[in-house]
Write a protein that binds this DNA or RNA. Structure first.
Length: 491
RNA sequence: CGGGGUGUAGCGCAGCCCGGUUAGCGCAUCUGGUUUGGGACCAGAGGGUCGCAGGUUCGAAUCCUGCCACCCCGACCA
């Protein structure tokens, strides 16, 4: 078979780039660092959105929308927050263009300078908390459980399609609560929603945990994250949920009267996932033939390909194929019948494999005669022939089976690539050889964390919630430690 | 932003070092025909501001300057 993709083993990042382009998910745009998400890629994002939106609403949240622009002054109200984001903000300074007097096209009109510059949101805490000030007076106004689907801009140095783009799509939840406990509960609830989504829908096992102080969100008291292991042994942060304490309430002076009549600041959380999840799906499951989409997020779950010698034969096949299609659609399965005549079946087989379609049905005269259909599954590339009248029974089970199988495959990969390490030499050796997750002791200090990062390029991905207490010595400093934390090189 | 590389048709590339009439190849596209159970074949056709802007020259894809974009490696990050 001819090579259409760079081999994953040869050059992982080239393979990734090839895949995104060739599977028609996205492409680079005329603007540096910004991508065009193409219909097939966007369809996957829409599936992600739909399921997350359902989960948010099921946990009591509602959607709203806040502006793209944030007055510069808002941004500086929370000290840690501005510190964290200042270096990557796009700024609007003017509101008008004009024709150049020297005939050199269009220029910024210097008389149209804004009184106060506007920041294009890198995240919306500030403008949202400015609104919340007006919305909250009493404990009866709480909690506020709002999510918004939006685009944000972070002026990154180096970008990669889906993993890190200058503009990206995401959702950001911003909640306000009367008590610290309730806000912490919300923060935990949402990291669990994310973890559930990653594992159930994306078929990607994740580790939930706390971020170390240095890795925390700018302005948060605590950040929870889910971390997934990619096939090249690097970690990808897939979602974060932040306990913001009263920091933003204080910065924007949002106080409420509690049950006892006492005035207090509101407690906050924020949480988000982005189009980066697309990258996680790709790097978590895809192979040298292309994408492997989890059935629950695949825009096309089943593709039917006719094999025929002439138009008359195609017409006969189409009759059966359309019946199969209608039957599966009635079961809520998305089916594409590809009867285009410009490509041969072999071409289509390869193309749908590249696009990660979970199940392919091929039907030809031979099948028609035997009342059968050939079923090929994308996850393990096996084929079987089944009677047509068993399709409605077989395919739903098969989709579930594929969903479970790719999850288990990813889980096994993670198990095989998670190492409990106690010696610094082994730590470095593992990172350089195969990568993976490393569970090791850490003395809890910023200094050690920094040194480890410098010398190994690995960071603390998180302190897993379920990491058991055990006495040990820090992998780097040898000082005492109570539990292992999760290290990895990351995206 | 630092180091390295690349930019020529929708895609992948040759030509550039050593300037010279109409800029070439493969894939894709279009037309006609034969095909169709794992990326078909034959014949014909269309498609180019040679990344952009200046400069040198009788003449620039080719030489010079600046800029832009993309890729890889670092620092920053979801």
């Amino acid at each position: 078979m001819a090579k259409f993709l760079t081999n994953r083993e040869e050059n992982y990042s080239q393979w990734y780039n090839d895949l995104v382009i060739k599977a028609d998910l996205a492409e680079n745009s005329a603007v540096r660092g910004c991508m065009v998400i193409k219909p097939y890629g966007y369809a996957i994002w829409e599936k992600i959105q739909a399921e997350l939106d359902r989960l948010f609403k099921a946990t009591g949240h509602v959607n709203a929308y806040f502006p793209l622009f944030i007055p510069k002054s808002f941004f500086s109200k929370e000290a840690a927050h501005v510190e964290g984001f200042a270096k990557e903000c796009a700024v609007v300074t003017h509101y008008r263009l004009k024709n150049d007097e020297n005939g050199k096209g269009i220029v910024v009109d210097p008389t149209a300078k804004l009184e106060e510059e506007l920041i294009i949101r890198p995240t919306s805490e500030t403008i949202i908390w400015h609104s919340y000030k007006n919305w909250i007076q009493s404990y009866r106004d709480l909690p506020i459980l709002i999510n918004q689907w939006a685009n944000v801009v972070r002026w990154e140095m180096r970008t990669r399609l889906f993993l890190r783009t200058t503009e990206f799509l995401w959702q950001e939840g911003h909640t306000a609560h009367a008590t610290r406990e309730e806000a912490i509960e919300e923060t935990e609830k949402m990291i669990n929603v994310y973890a559930g989504f990653a594992e159930n829908s994306m078929a990607l096992p994740v580790i939930k945990g706390y971020k170390s102080e240095t890795e925390r969100f700018a302005g948060a008291l605590d950040t929870f994250a889910i971390e997934a292991l990619m096939q090249d042994g690097k970690a990808l942060q897939c979602g974060t949920s932040h306990f913001l304490g009263q920091n933003f309430a204080k910065a924007f002076d949002v106080q409420f009267t509690d049950r006892t009549g006492k005035l207090d600041y509101v407690w906050a959380t924020s949480w988000g996932v982005s189009t980066r999840l697309m990258g996680a799906i790709i790097m978590g499951h895809a192979d040298n033939h292309g994408l492997v989409l989890p059935p629950k997020l695949a825009p096309i779950q089943v593709v039917i390909i006719p094999i025929y010698k002439n138009i008359e034969q195609l017409a006969t096949l189409s009759e059966t194929a359309n019946k199969i299609k209608a039957g599966l659609e009635a079961l809520g399965i998305s089916v594409k019948y590809d009867d285009r005549d410009n490509n041969k079946p072999g071409w289509k087989f390869a193309d749908y494999e590249l696009k990660g379609v979970p199940v392919r049905l091929a039907i030809g005269p031979r099948d028609l005669e035997n009342k059968t259909v050939e079923v090929a599954r994308r996850d393990n590339l096996t084929k079987e022939t089944i009677p047509i009248d068993k399709v409605n029974e077989h395919i739903p089970k098969l989709l579930e089976d594929i969903q479970a199988n790719i999850f288990n495959k990813a889980l096994n990969f993670r198990k095989e690539n998670t190492f409990y390490v106690d010696k610094w030499d082994d730590f470095l050796k593992i990172l350089d050889n195969q990568g993976g997750f490393i569970m090791a002791h850490w003395d809890g200090t910023k200094e050690t964390e920094e040194k480890i990062k410098e010398e190994s390029k690995a960071t603390i991905r998180c302190i897993p919630f379920d990491s058991p207490e055990e006495d040990g010595k820090c992998i780097y400093s040898g000082k005492p430690s109570k539990r292992r934390v999760l290290f990895a090189r990351s995206y």
